[in-house]
Design a protein around this nucleic acid. Sequence first.
DNA 1: CGCCAGGACAGCC
DNA 2: GGCTGTCCTGGC
Length: 284
Amino acid sequence: MEKLSTSLRNKIVCKTRFSIDHTLKCGQIFRYFIFDSYYYVPYNNSVIVLRQNNNIVYYEVFGEEIEEKELKEFLGINHDIENINNYLLQREGKLREMLTFSEGLRIVKTPTYETLISFLFSIKNSIPVITKKLNLLSEIAGDSIIVNNKKFYTFPKSSRLRSLTNKDYERLRIGYREKFLREFVGLYNEEDVISLEKKPYEEKRKILLSIKGVGEKVAQCVLLFGFSELSAFPVDVWIEMALWNYFGVKGSIKKLTEFGRNTFGEYAGYAQEYMYRYIRIKNT
DNA sequence: CGCCAGGACAGCC
DNA sequence: GGCTGTCCTGGC
């Protein structure tokens, strides 16, 4: 068992600070599993097994193959983090402590469709509940992949979600979020998303906000994690608290979102995640 | 038992 | 535009 890290077939040598743990545990990703310091992460039609030793990330992909370039994008390893951090510190020195606290955290890039549904589930729910519901949904409608005698499920494709039965929905028990899911699944069209990718931030935001169940916060999450719009700045209750505690700012979610984007600029999303992880851990 | 959680929305002004 | 009550479920 101890030898598995070296038996994981591939490795990435990170040139700058990277932390799988910080990256996965800061609320961007809900579905990951940890056994004996190995991280098992369902991603599209695969399960990625990861283990980190200092700046080396060992990994192996089960199921559909994933190119290293895509894996790096998924985990944010491709981001020029030193440049991003310098940019943020120059804009706002108060970030230094939070930034140091979460060194190695990266913003992930997750499939848009899955990201949107995940954050529909997040509406007024705690992370353990979101995770549980998303895992159940995957068990109901995803494909299984077995790794080391453990069974994992991929996130369901849109066609499978469209054919969910009433009984499936009863099992899910997601309350008023059900109508959001049903409507989104019915309207979803992959080509629309692909054409959206190229459009500017504000256009994407407007379209996301037109989806039922997507308000400012969820839209910012999809922009940040799904579309890699690193200037997006999701404001939840924690960020609201952080902005008040550390910056003395109060206001509506919309105003706070604007404040964050104006204050932290092009990489506001990173400032948000640093703040988020910091205040959550300091307050629990 | 009561309360509220990593929000959105309609209805109101 | 901002403010308020309501919405399902799970967990404490």
